[in-house]
Amino acid sequence: MKTIVSIRNLEKHYGPKRAVAGISFTMTEGEILGLLGPNGAGKSTTINILSTILSPDKGEVEIVGHDLRKEPLAIKQNIGIVPQDLAIFEEITAEQNVRFFAGLYKLKRDDLDELVKEALELVGLEDRKKEKPKTFSGGMKRRLNIACAIAHRPKLIIMDEPTVGIDPQSRNHILESIKTLREKGATIIYSTHYMEEVEAIADRIMIMNEGVIIAEGTKEELIQIAGNETIYRFELNNSQNLDEQRISQIPGITNVHLAENQLTVQSEKSKSILHAIIATLFDNGCTFEKMTSKETSLETVFLELTGKRLRD
């Protein structure tokens, strides 16, 4: 597989503050990398450096085989950025918007029509291309925002929270288009606050916090880091006869905790042991009103690693 992005020891300071503190990673062609992190984690700084508008203090960056410091123009030609802000012109039509931004790249005039059409089709705005974005809904503007970044067929697409504040339908449409882009061979960096989006499309996930990468891997690998487990909670009607020892002896149970008729049992996720726990409870003469179970999710991983909720 061809390496599209290669970053080594990237650093960027704002005064005494280290926005990016020596990160390294690589991406291969056709990969979708989900970039997660709380606000101020250094995601936007990293994205701005990759898009060549911010120069790094230290480190090496190579994109599509070009060195960031030596050939920024060659890099620009090969990347497409979907900015977090709606960077589109409200006063000209959707098509003119896409044509304008595509026109900033070195493209053949004959290809331009085709590329503009392709981009508008991909985001589902082909039938509204003659209208001005002023009249668009939030979701449509977001989609146009994406179309403007992809018309020149960039090899690397960087999306900075492209789905902020839109309806679920538009979001699904956007996620579908991203998958289509990947099928066409694009490599994508996808920064977001929405865990479910990353789970849905990313091949690999990277979590940043305070300027460093604190975890990286597939969804399964990350869940493994946080201890892949299932937690069961029982609200017992009576617990005076319950012997906690007997439950913790069940193979696969890692922890048992009982307090005021609330029983919490932690177990390894892969083991199916719910029936064993329930059988033991009945044996001890315990009945229960309610039972919940929770598996480790990306959200838990994130919370555990950063100490912050994602949308804080």
Partner: peptide
């Protein structure tokens, strides 16, 4: 103001 300038700066221009 509309951040379209930033976007243009990200292109080869």
């Amino acid at each position: 103001n509309k951040s379209t300038f930033k976007r243009i700066m990200m292109s080869p221009l």
